[in-house]
């Protein structure tokens, strides 16, 4: 084929351009360690990556929810254990009141201490979280759950707790409410008040009152212990969910990296081939350009 002088120049400079474009793209891939620099480089992989990105941010949110739920449940657990200890104390005091040798003065002292125990239990039930929410208030966390009323006690909590998402198929219940603990009108506290009143009244048969209150305390403790067990089970579920979540995040990231990360060995080999090609194109240009019949005429 006949080749004109301009054509020769054009095609050789075209070769150099093609070779240097290749080198520059490989260099960009190497410096970002990414195989895909724009979605159009690999549309299919890019669309998978977008889905994986969305999944990952969802997993991160669930992981943060798991942490929040764990904190809330452990706050409740601590408070419930304290309540349980105070109930034990109430039971000891009640039993000591059964002893016939106690004077009315002694009984008054026991009643006074029991009043304090009741108040502590009420305070513990009204525990607030760091954000100011009553932890046993359920979905009415802005109102103190337990409140001394004109006669007896008011229990203001909601009947159930919130749920939050912890995975695509699971949600966690955030513990128990004071209604679940003590009944809708805080019966336990009222029963304690009745007992205290009986102790203070010299004409009551203390032995019968003590027997009744022990039963009441047993029943309340059973409820508290059941709650502690429920919370423990919930915490275990959260731990399992956290492990699954972490596994999924790991799998997601490794899938992302297999889709978008650069095969370093392949890229460096490619770079050196491209550089050789570029050098060859430049050398052949510079040597061809010197050839001209005019040099010999």
């Amino acid at each position: 084929m006949r080749v004109s002088t301009m054509q020769l120049h054009n095609s050789m400079s075209g070769n150099i351009q093609t070779a240097s474009t290749g080198v520059s793209k490989t260099m960009m891939q190497l410096s970002s360690n990414k195989r895909i620099l724009a979605p159009s480089d690999d549309v299919f992989a890019a669309s998978q990556l977008m889905g994986l990105d969305d999944d990952l941010s969802q997993l991160e949110v669930w992981s943060s929810n798991i942490k929040s739920a764990t904190t809330m449940l452990s706050n409740q657990e601590t408070a419930l254990k304290d309540i349980n200890n105070n109930m034990n104390r109430a039971r000891d005091l009640a039993i000591s009141a059964k002893n016939g040798s106690k004077s009315q003065e002694d009984l008054e002292a026991i009643a006074k201490e029991l009043e304090q125990v009741v108040e502590t239990i009420a305070d513990l039930t009204n525990t607030k979280s760091s954000s100011g929410e009553y932890i046993f208030g359920g979905t009415k966390g802005d109102t103190a759950p337990i409140k001394k009323a004109a006669s007896g006690w008011d229990n203001n909590s909601s009947s159930s707790t919130r749920k939050i998402e912890i995975s695509d198929s699971q949600s966690a219940s955030l513990g128990v409410t004071s209604e679940q603990l003590f009944g809708s009108s805080a019966e336990f506290l009222e029963e304690m008040d009745t007992f205290i009143a009986a102790l203070k009244n010299p004409s009551t048969d203390n032995a019968a009152a003590v027997d009744k209150v022990i039963k009441d305390i047993d029943k309340a403790q059973k409820s508290v212990n059941e709650s502690i067990t429920t919370i423990g089970a919930e915490v275990n579920t959260l731990k399992a969910a956290e492990t699954t979540n972490a596994d999924k995040q790991l799998a997601n990231k490794s899938m992302q990296s297999s889709l978008e990360d650069l095969d370093f060995a392949e890229a460096t080999t490619r770079l050196s081939v491209q550089q050789t090609m570029l050098t060859a194109a430049q050398k052949s240009y510079s040597s061809t350009i010197k050839l001209s019949l005019f040099n010999y005429v």
Binding site: D54, Q58, S64, R162, E165
Partner: peptide, 27 residues
């Protein structure tokens, strides 16, 4: 498709924050 111009990150951030708020909605 740019990370600083695309919608994915901000959509995920918005719904993620809604989700986080569900743990303590009064906060």
């Amino acid at each position: 498709a740019g990370n600083s111009t695309g919608l994915s990150p901000v959509i995920n951030e918005f719904f993620g924050n809604l989700n986080k708020a569900s743990a303590d909605p009064m906060d």
